[in-house]
Design a binder for these strands. Structure first.
Lengths: 337, 337
DNA sequence: GCTTAGCACTCAACATGCCCAAGTGCTAAC
DNA sequence: GTTAGCACTTGGGCATGTTGAGTGCTAAGC
């Protein structure tokens, strides 16, 4: 049997099934796609595809549906990129409208992506780890309370109120601010644990106690738990595709709510620099997502944060991948400029 | 017929139905509750209750289920507050553990509440409108970029980067900071639109342009759109009670995602200062929530922000109300101290 | 060596008919 | 005002039959 036709058959099955949500049989296949052979031949091909674990039959006398492995092959070798429609392009360009603060932009982006794909869209805040310190500020709120503000060159502003333990003078704060700023301004945030102690060590003994506290505050601001934020939109789309989650959408909602899970998931997905990455069904590390697929890609400076969508394995991969890629690119451009 | 028994019958119907999710008939009723009369009598009572629109029968030969109006009467006049279990009390007290920043506290709170009630829990960030200014800070990030930070006595820290339009000197900023701080420190945030212009007017002409820009920045930080934030947890519980939303949980998820809707909903609910407020089914202003109930109450200083849960109308109101009240009280205590 | 027609076989989905249990409303008696 | 009794309604469960889509296999054809 011919290898190209085998792939063609798989492609047809995936496309039909995604379109109709119904197991697709040999006869329907030859009718809808001009494959140039009869249904009997297709039956033989399908038997082989099934042997290879690419498709499966829900029961004896039903058509076939793609398995996770089948989708994987489809995504990797068969699918062609679908160009976006003009309307979609226009929608993406409208991202520029509105306030240009990081949070607002991300929010609009994730909303847009969920509308474009009719799936749940997810975006991770830009990683701080590779960002650099742009500014540091200490503000005395009360005799012992200090507001520590750290601004990264990504536009992130992180702040935290800390308790100094003993009374703090304005002069001490100003002095320390200058010291910290001089030493760490421009350095990468993920180097803070190494850099900060040396700053403290160089302080005159009188200031060292306070410096220690402030350094610790700064460190927590840059720690990974801080950057662990995810924005999402379109969870209602899950309800629409209720049928596609035979068990329940409960576990999926749980996963989405558990930011740790989502972050892990996104960062586990390799960072193919020139395309989107897809994680299909049981490939997902989290059990609750065994019937879901994630299509994601990096964005922003160094493509270090991820944006993507989550939906049922029965998903229109080409279109979704195109949308994710287009939105990610445009988002990168906005943030870069 | 006796008024007390009528209420007793309604109470029994609500309780049984909430417990079993099945229409409850006259016979089962007399068996499970010792009402002291026969099923025939109950039948008569039920006919009256139905006439009054408090209960309804899904079809001719089925038992009755409470209507929205029935639940309303139940909540208003019948239900007794259920004391929390020791374990629940303990869980609530564990709220104190962990970081004590506003965001962390609210996050733990909403998680806890969703676990206690097995519903979706929702909490609104404390209103800024009645909060007072605790501190203001201007930080020069770049020659023309100023970071404006505003700290409220509720613990909220709001910040925003603004473009000054022309180069800014450090001295000017310091001078203006002193002016703003002196004039607005301690005043209510919702008075800012009135107070800020006068501060600007009193500035020396050389500073007035910058003062104007900064005042505008401060104003947006205090505007209502800023305080419009909601945290939620437990959306996966919706999937569990799938059956209770005959249509779909889609509209419910949509409503939850639409912060505007939720904020409107929460603030529309009267502010009964000594108890929780309940909004049942079609009482909700939003169509998608016509099969949902919201149990909410105010918390924090002036009980100006809301916390609550959302679930199907078929909900264990007494327990839910007790949990919401207990959590809100404890949260108020934590934030107050 | 592929491809194809033909055929027997399987099985979910649907329809039909039947009965049952739960529940109601009403009436007449207490 | 309460109750027993009864006729009536109706959804749900079950057994049965039918249909149609789909398969696998075999034998013939190119």
């Amino acid at each position: 049997m011919s290898e190209p036709r085998k792939l063609e058959v798989l492609r047809a099955i995936v496309e039909d099934y995604v379109h109709s949500r119904e197991p697709v049989g040999s006869k329907a296949l030859v009718e809808r796609h001009h494959l140039g052979v009869s249904s009997a031949t297709i039956r033989n091909d399908m038997a082989i595809l099934e042997e290879e674990g690419l498709i499966a039959a829900p029961h004896t006398s039903a058509g076939r549906i793609p398995t996770d492995k089948g989708y994987r092959l489809f995504v990797d070798r068969i699918s062609a990129v679908k160009p976006l429609s003009a309307a979609e392009r226009r929608a993406i360009h409208s991202l520029l409208e509105g306030p240009d603060e990081l949070e607002d932009i991300l929010e609009r982006t994730v909303r847009l992506l969920s509308q474009l794909t009719n799936q749940v869209a997810v975006v991770q805040y830009p990683h701080l780890s590779r960002a650099r310190v742009r500014h540091v500020e200490f503000v005395l709120l009360a005799p012992r309370q200090v507001l520590v503000v750290l601004i990264a060159d990504t536009g992130n502003v992180e702040q935290k109120v800390i308790d100094a333990g003993s009374d703090v003078s304005d002069e001490a704060l100003t002095a320390l601010r200058a010291r910290f700023l001089g030493s760490i301004s421009g350095s990468q945030l993920d180097l803070m644990p190494q850099v900060l102690p040396s700053v403290v060590a160089l302080c005159p003994p009188a200031l060292r106690g306070l410096a220690q506290v402030l350094a610790h505050g700064l460190e927590t601001l840059t720690s990974s738990s801080r950057e662990a934020r995810i924005l999402m939109a379109g969870t209602a789309n899950l309800a629409r595709s209720n049928v596609d989650f035979p068990l329940s959408i409960g576990p999926v909602l749980e996963a989405l709510e558990e930011q740790v899970v989502m972050l892990r998931l996104l960062s586990d997905m390799g960072d193919d620099p020139r395309g989107v990455t897809v994680s299909i069904g049981r490939e997902n590390p989290y059990d609750g997502l065994s019937e879901a697929s994630v299509v994601a890609t990096g964005y922003g400076p160094g493509t270090n944060a991820k944006i993507g969508v989550l939906g049922p394995t029965r998903m229109d991969y080409p279109t979704t991948m195109a949308a994710v890629r287009a939105v990610a690119r445009y988002l990168s451009r906005i943030l870069g400029g």
